[in-house]
Each structure stands twice: as C-alpha cells, then as structure tokens.
C-alpha cells in the first residue's frame, strides 16, 4: 500500500500547515506528481477520499493532480531527453552516463483554503 503511506503523510503535512496558517478548511489541493514517481494517480485519489474524512480541516478537500514530465540528462553529450520513451540509455549518443533531472517528485504546489 504505497499510495496510502503517501496519503497519510500528505494529510499530516496539510494539518500542520492548517495549524500554522490558522486555516479552518482546505478546499482544492494541487499536487504535482512526477511521471516516474511511482505513484498511481487513480489509486492515490481514491485513497485520499477514503482518508481525508478523518481530518476535520480536510474532509471537504479535493485533490487535483498535475503531472511533471520525466526528463533525463546525458552527461556524455550534454543533452536531455524524455525518460519514459528512452529509459536509461541516451537516444543521441547511446551513453549510459545519464540521470534523471525531473519527474520523480511529489510536491504540494498550492492549496485553496479559508
């Protein structure tokens, strides 16, 4: 239950934010999810709807997911390419000296609240 673990942390992080900012209710929660973060978005939203009712400040919240495309950088030819399409090997020079520069994140971008 990978998604459930993330949902629990998300709820905890938002609860803390609500306390610090003295918020009564949180509406929309915009989450940026990397293409290769390993998060299954359908399951994640379901898990959120199941769990949010336990937190008064979050019970009417709505999760909005935005995808961040995965991009890999090649250290050999200094170019970037789409990770999902080509994987670990650079399509330009076939080097394996490559690493992910974005697409692994899971960030709370913004929330709507009162």
């Amino acid at each position: 239950m990978h998604e459930m673990g993330i949902v629990i942390h998300l709820a905890k992080t938002l609860d803390q934010t609500a306390e610090e900012e003295k918020l009564k209710a949180i509406g929309k929660v915009v989450l940026q999810v990397g293409e290769v973060s390993g998060i299954m978005t359908d399951l994640f939203t379901d898990a959120w709807d199941y769990f949010k009712v336990r937190h008064p400040v979050l019970k009417d919240s709505e999760l909005v997911l935005e995808t961040i495309p995965a991009v890999t950088y090649c250290d050999s030819c200094k170019s970037t390419y789409e990770t999902v399409k080509y994987g670990k090997e650079c399509p330009h020079c076939h080097s394996g000296e490559t690493w992910l520069i974005q697409g692994n994140e899971c960030v709370i971008k913004e929330i709507e609240a009162e």
Binding site: I108, E110, E112
Partner: peptide, 9 residues
C-alpha cells in the same frame, strides 16, 4: 490560495 511548494513527505 496559498502557494506551498512543499514535498508531500
């Protein structure tokens, strides 16, 4: 709207 930019964890 509150901008957060916080990691989920």
């Amino acid at each position: 709207i509150i901008k957060l930019g916080l990691g989920v964890t």
